[in-house]
Design a protein around this nucleic acid. Structure first.
Lengths: 133, 133
DNA sequence: TGAAATAGGACTACGCAAGTCGTATTTACA
DNA sequence: TGTAAATACGACTTGCGTAGTCCTATTTCA
């Protein structure tokens, strides 16, 4: 409950890793070994980060990944959004299709949870990869 | 990902309900019908809230539940902790047995996530049931 | 041309959330 | 004193999402 997914953790670690090496090209193999992350899983994460334009892929031998933006311009929220493909929502009300919640009409806690939701979004948006030293 | 469980939502709704009726005795049937919550599920939630001493049960006919403390003294965190029975942790590092994380030793994002964790805890601790109008 | 790298689909395993069911126990009140 | 209304609680089922594995295709450097 209320946990980040491993994919997001892996993504943050990877992006931070590249940033910490001054954007030097890095491979899945290198990162997965260094941090003991299953390489197949990390590979998919990197592909999503690429599609989300947070990093740039370099195919072929001697290839790998570099950041697509400066580390100061990549927020934790960016990484989450790109990897999960959905909005962060602590309840259905704040994700897509709020109406799907079985309780929607009678729910009395949407507003208070909304405050918490906003707070979370703010924290995730304001924390940048460059701060993850 | 990062979602509260339905049980916690139900618990918050129930506690708020009782508080909004000035701590008048309320039954599972009444609450489950009013908010369209499955009564069996709600019953278990109420039992946990009782064990956690947030509400008081009154068995037998004409029984039900009342708050065990003033609404100003019940935080959202209290409800979560009692219902889930575990610490809120956005990653394994912040739950029980941090060492179980497959990445623990090499993880580079414990500190930044810790900031987010603390922020979350603060928000949940400071929001009281009395504020959930 | 071969090796090193990304791209990406298909599949499995597992755990947890959510809900259901059945039964026991307590208590007010007719 | 019996019955109905209520809580107590364990066992079970189901479904879904997470995490991970496997396999193959494609790209590119040397």
């Amino acid at each position: 409950m209320l946990k980040l997914s491993k994919k997001v953790e892996y993504g943050l670690i990877a992006v931070r890793h590249i940033a910490s090496l001054n954007n030097q090209i890095s491979t899945v193999k290198e990162i997965s070994e260094k941090y003991a992350i299953p390489s197949d899983v990390l590979a998919k994460v990197m592909q999503r980060l690429t599609k989300g334009k947070l990093i740039t892929s370099h195919q072929g031998a001697m290839g790998g990944y570099t950041l697509a933006r400066r580390a100061e311009e990549i927020s934790v929220m960016d990484v989450i959004a790109v990897i999960e493909g959905t909005q962060v929502g602590i309840a259905q009300c704040f994700a897509e299709e709020p109406q799907n919640c079985s309780i929607f009409h009678a729910c009395t806690i949407k507003n208070p949870l909304g405050k918490i939701q906003h707070n979370l979004e703010h924290v995730f948006n304001s924390m940048k990869v460059s701060e993850i030293v």
